[in-house]
């Protein structure tokens, strides 16, 4: 702040409040719609204030499912999403930690080649190789399984890079001391490197959890059985129902439930989230 300009300050706050409204408005309307009875959402305009069907709408979607769309109870989809998000986040972190450790703390033939192989995955998002990846997943018998949902997505160049960068900043003396004291590589990894990486792991976890939770295309392709639907892809089945109007109060209740977990994660772990975001993009 260089000079005092009350009008500009006021204007700044106004713009920011406008931004907040822009960000919050769609979600508010979704929440409002999810608390109304079906007939309130058939004609005219969506009300602006919550109705009195909150408890029953959420109870219905969570435990009974929406029969007209053939959707299973949302509680099941939430569970699947949780398994998928946790599996992807933890899986990526685990395999990236190990390979980054190998690349930084060992010299071995093909080290550079391996590094490049991992690096290439950056250039191959699932969207550009869907059909062949689907075929291979099918051949491995992984369709309609948690393995199929998780495994093809857990190779991550960014996580490996992040850990490599971090390991490079760990003082040489630590490894030296560990070696003098007779600690092997695995002991050094477990007792020194892992505890030091705690913050990085947590920050990355926040980002990867959201990445996993929000997956859409991949679950859409590998699941045909309702018992493996994830919530983010499940919404689509409620919206695009054939030959009838979507049941908006259920759709919106599902939408609110689908965005709640990742939003809570971000708001609660904001500091870690920002750190993770900035570092993975470096």
């Amino acid at each position: 702040m260089v000079e005092h300009r009350p009008i500009l300050n006021l204007l700044s706050h106004l713009v920011l409040l406008l931004g907040v409204a822009l960000v919050a408005f769609p979600v508010w309307i979704a929440f409002v719609a999810s608390t109304h009875a079906p007939h309130d959402l058939l004609t005219g305009v969506v009300p602006l204030l919550p109705g009195d069907h909150l408890v029953e709408n959420y109870r219905d979607v969570l435990f009974r499912g929406v029969s007209t769309s053939g959707a299973p109870p949302i509680a099941l989809m939430l569970g699947n999403s949780l398994v998928m998000a946790l599996g992807i986040a933890l899986g990526k972190i685990a395999i990236s930690l190990l390979s980054a450790f190998a690349i930084v703390y060992f010299r071995f033939p093909f080290r550079i080649a391996i590094f490049w192989l991992i690096f290439i995955t950056l250039m191959l998002p699932v969207e550009v190789r869907i059909l062949p990846t689907f075929e291979i997943t099918a051949q491995l018998g992984l369709l309609n399984s948690y393995g199929g949902l998780i495994l093809p997505l857990i190779a991550s160049a960014t996580a490996t890079f992040l850990f490599r960068q971090f390991f490079m900043t760990v003082p040489e003396e630590l490894a030296e001391a560990a070696r003098i004291d007779g600690a092997g590589p695995l002991k050094f990894f477990r007792d020194i490197l892992l505890p030091l990486s705690r913050t990085n792991i947590a920050a990355l976890f926040v980002i990867l959890f959201i990445y996993g939770w929000n997956q859409y295309l991949w679950p859409l392709i590998v699941t045909t059985s309702e018992s493996y639907y994830t919530i983010v892809m499940g919404i689509q089945r409620l919206v695009t129902v054939a030959d009838q109007l979507p049941q908006w109060h259920y759709v919106m209740a599902t939408t609110v439930l689908a965005m709640l977990p990742p939003v809570v994660v971000i708001v609660v772990m904001q500091r870690l989230f920002v750190k993770g975001l900035v570092e993975t993009e470096k």
Partner: peptide
């Protein structure tokens, strides 16, 4: 790499194996 490195013939490959397997099979 680090100035101080560990010496081991097959451990580094073993550590890279999970990531490599997934990269090769699914990417």
């Amino acid at each position: 790499t680090k100035r101080v490195v560990f010496r081991h013939t097959f451990l580094p490959y073993l550590l890279c194996l999970p990531q490599l397997a997934i990269t090769l099979v699914f990417f």
